[in-house]
Design a protein around this nucleic acid. Structure first.
Lengths: 336, 336
DNA sequence: TTTAGCACTCTTTGACTTTGATTGCTAACC
DNA sequence: GGTTAGCAATCAAAGTCAAAGAGTGCTAAA
């Protein structure tokens, strides 16, 4: 579709613009980009790339910037997905070797690492519990009117929640509950906690609705509720020149503050481990001036949640994708 | 110290400046502030208030703005701590009646309410665990090499943590642990988890260091580690005119992103329930251009943590303090 | 003690100019 | 035919300047 030299010019413009955040002039490309021709020739190429929609101009006499189509072509065809230094490899490795007890902590460390290496803001959400199986459920009495339910899923996720009662309960009751819930729920999908379970429990159990109802409700709630969103490196974005515009900065803060938007952003997306959304490719209108790269991270095939990088359209896609691919590889060798 | 009219003038200037964010002119005070005199008289008063250090000027021919001393005098002597409307009372009451199972949730709801009513950014930290007593500690086996420890303190705080082992453990061992830990730790301060406990356990117990060591370490860690910081309404601050300066906005984001700074900010402070720090009164240099109001919230005397409001020095202290006092009253009648 | 009047100060705004970077086009070159 | 030098045209950014407007401080009178 594009001849070799056009590809080179496009790549050079995208990379130069990613580096400098300034519209790229024909002159700037005559040095250090392996293009053995004059600025006039490059001007001709640029003009044609603009006609085909790969480049934009900010005004008639300005240099060129990549268009959405230009970025997309770069991401699909031109980027280097091994753009990672030895120092970065060492840093990432050491961070990922941190011993963690909870999946959430590994997700946080991973997100933090990505943010540190790429200097972009990351957003994190836990894995959807609704697709998982219940491996074990345990109840612990705390005091006389409070109980904790601990649920372990097949992917190693642990969720816990506190349940309060209006009447005293005793160890015996908790034990029975432990037995019956496990009996009915072990290795079952989460939807099982519903009518059938409720009826079974009412029939079989000796104690009252006052005890059973809050238990079922609270467990359902904690398993179905939206996962928490974590941010890393919000301030990093503010070092970028595009955030010198107050409007952009405000916009960005508003977006990060809207947790539902963030959750939708992270949960949408295709089956791919890594998805790139450039500007208007984002489903959400609010994100049209930003690019988002989402990364579903897994350990031994177990879904740990999704990490998103959110930054300017002029994002360093090579670096971001290289880092994610490397982390992906590393995590798959990790034993948890 | 200040005669009545000077107080009135100072109060009027502070309140006008809080409302408009513009330097206040002598003319602006002749209307709607109950000052029965001409602008010239007010100019004379303003001149004297400036000499005594209560007011500042941005330049020779500008109106006046309150100085740090001016704000302090206003907060100590002039503010109205019942500046709260019926709608606000209703809104706050309904929010606080939400049924919660965990202390953390109540803190979040309270912080969210404050942020909604005042339109400022709030920062939240949980109560210090180190001052609390252990009421109960329970261990739950999850699978064969994983255990959850649940710790209940005397103030009703529940902390849980996961512990992983390099060898299999069984229900019997967990039961013994339950017995022995409770035996030694019940109603004891958290410092008890230390040498004495360790030695006692090694002596008395049948199983190995491999099992006991991670348990003690992890419990210590979770009880001693800094509480998480939660932010509410970061974006709200960006509607204020002072955040139209990019420098201020960046600064603010950096501050909010520095969790240690936030933790220190919330943990410092006097025994008072409500503390006000205006500009340079803040211990931390970084906060010198902001004001912080901290609010230790309690239910029936039990410490639930600290909520901080962070905003411009031109903060609506009356509203903020009125809201906090009202919430304080409400929470003390709440039964948990 | 209060107030009217007025000169003085200083910011803000907008119009206008200059500077400099960059393009697009044309004509010559290989 | 593709490549390049040369040059006019374009436009943003920065600088200059004057006018407008808001507000004070001082003086003298009430």
């Amino acid at each position: 579709m594009l001849d070799e030299r056009k590809k080179k010019v496009l790549q050079a413009i995208v990379e130069e613009y990613i580096n400098t955040a300034e519209p790229v002039s024909s002159n700037a490309l005559t040095q250090n980009h392996g293009l053995e021709c004059s600025s006039a020739t490059i001007r001709n190429e640029m003009s044609e790339l603009e006609k085909s929609g790969f480049l934009d101009k900010t005004h008639t006499s300005s240099g060129r910037i990549p268009s959405a189509k230009g970025y997309r072509y770069y991401v699909d065809e031109l980027l280097n997905d091994n753009d990672i230094s030895l120092e970065e490899i060492k840093y990432i490795s050491s961070k990922l070797e941190t011993k963690v007890n909870e999946i959430e902590d590994l997700t946080k460390i991973t997100a933090n690492t990505i943010s540190e290496v790429t200097h972009y803001t990351t957003v994190t959400i836990g894995p959807k519990t609704t697709t998982q199986l219940i491996e074990e459920i345990k109840f612990v009495l705390l005091g006389s009117r409070m109980m904790m339910a601990v649920i372990l899923t097949d992917t190693g996720l642990v969720k816990e929640t506190i349940i309060k009662f209006d009447e005293d309960i005793n160890e015996k009751q908790v034990e029975t509950m432990n037995y019956m819930f496990n009996n009915k729920l072990k290795n079952q999908p989460i939807e099982t906690i519903d009518r059938p379970l409720e009826e079974y429990l009412y029939d079989e159990m000796t104690y009252s609705v006052n005890v059973i109802k809050p238990v079922i409700e609270q467990i359902k709630k904690v398993l179905e509720e939206e996962n928490k969103i974590y941010l890393e490196g919000t301030n990093k974005s503010f070092d970028l020149p595009e955030f010198n515009s107050l409007e952009v900065a405000k916009n960005f803060i508003n977006i990060l503050d809207t947790k539902e938007l963030m959750a939708d952003m992270l949960n949408s997306g295709f089956a791919e481990d890594i998805n790139v959304y450039i500007g208007e490719e984002n489903e959400k209108q609010e994100l049209k001036d930003f690019s988002v790269v989402t990364f579903k991270h897994k350990v031994n095939g177990k879904d740990l949640g999704t990490i998103g990088i959110i930054g300017p359209k002029r994002m360093d896609y090579s670096k971001v994708i290289s880092v994610m691919k490397y982390i992906n590889k590393k995590l798959n060798n990790k034993n948890m």
